[in-house]
């Protein structure tokens, strides 16, 4: 019973943030259109580069690109309200509430990323049927690959929410989030595989690319989906993701703890 009451504030904040994301329905439609356009451009590019040389690699890459676009919001999204609160000092009102602020922000990030991406991903899937067959994404390598993909995607969300929390933790020191977001978002776009699929990088970079934190979000789940990583490797992938989620969360907790101590809200 005690345990339940301990988590209640965070569950409640999580639920409310899920609900809040529903206010942004037109943003989701705009998001889908953007992702489809980007996806088409990338498909065209890889069509020109790969389809003649290696048709299978081309189809794999197309699938990778589309799934990256579907879950774009899991990677690049910021809780604008939290950032605004830190910038304007309204965060004081959260500081006079008995919540652990770092966890509170973390669950808000998580809820935002989950609703944000599924609100875009699910309606976008039927649109794939309108695409020319060569540009349509492949089905998962096997039913078990799909299940492995979903498990690892879930942990991917935990990692990305921790990254977002680090941005907020840094913002508690700098008060402005533009600098840190510009840096982190650039790293995310490159090292998540959003601009160029990480699978296309030369073999000698692959170990590094798989171990680094950003690939935990979408790249590893997608490799499981495509069967590039066999399902047998799922436990290792999950452990790696959990480790990164924990590490990054602890880093954000450190930044929050230090930041809240030194944060000075000026003015009346």
């Amino acid at each position: 019973m005690k345990r339940v009451s301990h988590f209640r504030p965070y569950l409640s904040a999580f639920r409310l943030r899920l609900k809040m994301e529903w206010s942004y329905r037109s943003a989701a439609i705009a998001g889908i259109l953007t992702q489809v356009v980007f996806g088409l451009i990338l498909c065209g590019l890889y069509d020109a580069l790969l389809s003649a040389r290696d048709p299978h690699l081309f189809r794999e890459t197309v699938t990778y690109v589309w799934l990256q676009q579907l879950f774009f919001r899991a990677v690049l999204s910021t809780d604008a309200e939290l950032s605004r609160q830190i910038m304007t000092g309204s965060i004081v009102s959260s500081m006079v509430r008995p919540v652990h602020l770092c966890s509170y922000c973390y669950v808000r990030n998580l809820a935002m990323k989950l609703t944000g991406s599924f609100m875009r991903a699910l309606p976008a899937i039927p649109l794939f049927l309108l695409l020319p067959p060569a540009y349509q994404p492949l089905l998962p390598a096997s039913p078990s690959a799909l299940i492995a993909f979903l498990f690892s995607l879930a942990l991917g969300f935990l990692v990305m929410s921790a990254v977002e929390n680090i941005c907020l933790g840094v913002q508690l020191h700098t008060l402005d989030n533009r600098g840190i977001n510009a840096i982190i978002h650039l790293l995310q776009e490159i090292f998540c595989g959003n601009i160029i699929p990480l699978t296309l990088f030369p073999e000698r970079f692959q170990t590094f690319l798989r171990l680094q934190p950003f690939s935990q979000a979408l790249d590893l789940p997608l490799r499981l989906y495509l069967g590039i990583l066999p399902v047998q490797e799922l436990p290792i992938v999950l452990c790696l993701q959990a480790l990164w989620a924990l590490l990054l969360y602890c880093l954000s907790e450190y930044l929050f703890r230090h930041g809240l101590r030194s944060l000075v809200i000026h003015g009346g």
């Binding site: 209640r8 504030p9 569950l11 409640s12 904040a13 409310l16 609900k19 809040m20 206010s23 309200e81 309204s90 009102s93 959260s94 509430r97 008995p98 919540v99």
Partner: peptide
């Protein structure tokens, strides 16, 4: 402000109850 900007104030109050 301490209430959530984009949600009904009723929901903000419920969150406080759970907090």
């Amino acid at each position: 402000t301490q209430l959530w900007w984009d949600v009904p104030i009723r929901d903000s109050f419920s969150l406080l109850r759970d907090i």
